[in-house]
Design a protein around this nucleic acid. Structure first.
Lengths: 129, 129
DNA sequence: CTTGAGCTTACAGTTACTAGAACCTTTATG
DNA sequence: CATAAAGGTTCTAGTAACTGTAAGCTCAAG
């Protein structure tokens, strides 16, 4: 099937599907006219990628996951290790983001928000600590 | 003072300080030999930027904040609105990240992680739902 | 046969830097 | 005074993961 159909079935934009071909993630066959030709297996891989990307795995992680996915004899320990490393990163990002939110919340609360030029947000940003 | 000193005092890498000059965020004077020459005011602005970037404001937000910071007659309502919009984005990101973490946690827990090729993480990624 | 949709490639732009190369200036030392 | 190290300059390219745009080829329908 053509790229558009593969894109629709996998839920990705066609631009992205072409991009995944370009970087060698999912390389389709080509027809006589040069058009990409995706089969069901390729569409499955694209859908797999969409899900993995949504879960925040990087493209390189995805490449790895895809090869494990392809490999019937892969060890699930490999996959688990990858997922665990990823979870760790997510927890770090979460903590940072929460801290950031608290700081911002505090600043917004302290800011009167009227037309007086005195503003605690700017005061904090300028390093009043 | 030279770029290195300005960088050290503001807590930014000198590369970044030069970059901020290039994009017109903090443009220092130049000496006869072409060297950048930062004064205390410029260093203050750099430090301001560091803090604002740490809080997750984009460069364009920072440009806006900087002009408000410079403007003695700015309305703190403007700053507050910017901060509130930013907080909203952060909350969205937080919710997404939390959801992601829960999914991943669940998957890792369900994965036995030994050498058997059967792996629930890959099963989920392939769209078993 | 023409029109329009859909395919192709290639190149630029996005964000916020970072790395490296080639070259110039200043400062410290023998 | 010569020189070498340290630090300054600009420029280009690379990063992640696409997205947008343009020029041009192919195909299906009327």
């Amino acid at each position: 099937m053509n790229v558009r159909d593969a894109a629709e079935r996998s839920g990705l934009p066609s631009k992205t599907v072409r991009y995944y071909d370009e970087i060698g993630l999912v390389v389709p066959d080509r027809r006589g006219n040069g058009y990409r030709d995706y089969d069901d297996r390729a569409v499955q891989k694209l859908a797999f990628l969409k899900r993995a990307r949504q879960l925040g795995f990087s493209i390189e992680d995805c490449r790895h996951l895809l090869s494990l996915y392809e490999d019937k004899d892969r060890a699930s320990a490999d996959v688990k290790a990858l997922a665990e490393a990823h979870l760790k990163e997510i927890n770090v990002r979460l903590a940072e983001l929460e801290h950031l939110r608290d700081t911002l919340k505090h600043l917004i609360h302290a800011c009167h928000g009227d037309n007086r030029p005195d503003c605690p947000i700017l005061a904090d940003l300028s390093g009043k600590e």
